[in-house]
């Protein structure tokens, strides 16, 4: 499978993503500079974490207008797989490829810590290796992860099974106390209606190797690779 990792000025998880797909999962991978106006042929694009354009104005707001985003939109409408992690998720929201917006964390603090996620849907190319109810431990590292969306769209997300991950406690219970940032309904990750685009605030690329002490992130990449194989 061939992955493209989009690099914005200020991306800082791009090398982690590249390393995981290339060296841990032995897949083809290339960096794609945001100024490119043509996309080579890829099976999956990753929009990595970081602070594109310094998060100026709003996280992801300026990255939205990078030349490559036009191609990313085309890739999305052709059904290509897109994974947005943290700032990549924020860019997908600003680009309207996913619904909603990110607000400042409720605590007004940058939060960097491991926490638990409950897998809510296993019928997507990003989560097919898991089962609904699985608990995953992953790190978050963000200032703006307080997911907000209007009530009508929230209802649609629930009805169309687009909420893929929720923050939960160590027992797997989705509680207010387990919500790190104030996100509506503890939402940590969603997909679009067509299920080929996923955004998530936690960082699976930071927990996909035994040497890092946590391999729960592998589920995401293994699912994508499985899905990619099926597509072919």
């Amino acid at each position: 499978m061939k992955f493209g990792v989009i690099v914005f000025p200020g991306s800082n998880c791009d090398h982690d993503c590249y390393h995981v797909v290339k060296h841990v999962f032995k897949q083809d991978a290339e960096f794609v500079w945001h100024k490119e106006s043509r996309l080579a042929s890829y099976d999956c694009l990753i929009l990595p974490g970081g602070f594109s354009y310094g998060d100026y104005l709003r996280p992801g707001a300026i990255g939205k207008f990078s030349p490559i985003m036009k191609e990313v939109r085309r890739f999305a409408s052709d059904g290509g797989l897109i994974l947005g992690i943290c700032n990549g998720f924020q860019v997908l929201l600003e680009t309207d490829l996913l619904p909603g917006a990110m607000m400042r964390n409720r605590s007004l603090k940058f939060i960097c810590k491991d926490l638990y996620l409950r897998l809510e849907e296993d019928d997507t190319p990003f989560t097919n290796r898991g089962r609904v109810g699985d608990m995953l431990k992953m790190p978050i590292a963000h200032f703006d992860g307080n997911y907000f969306v209007d009530d009508k769209t929230l209802q649609e997300l629930e009805e169309n099974h687009q909420i893929l991950f929720r923050y939960c406690d160590h027992n797997g219970d989705v509680t207010t106390d387990a919500n790190p940032n104030g996100a509506m309904r503890n939402i940590a990750g969603i997909c679009n209606r067509e299920r080929n685009i996923m955004g998530m605030m936690p960082h699976p690329e930071r927990c996909s190797e035994s040497i890092l002490g946590n391999e729960d992130g592998r589920l995401i990449f293994e699912s994508i690779i499985d899905a990619g194989v099926v597509l072919r």
Partner: peptide
């Protein structure tokens, strides 16, 4: 287009 995010 840019200065405000109409969602919020």
């Amino acid at each position: 287009k840019l200065l405000a995010n109409p969602v919020i």
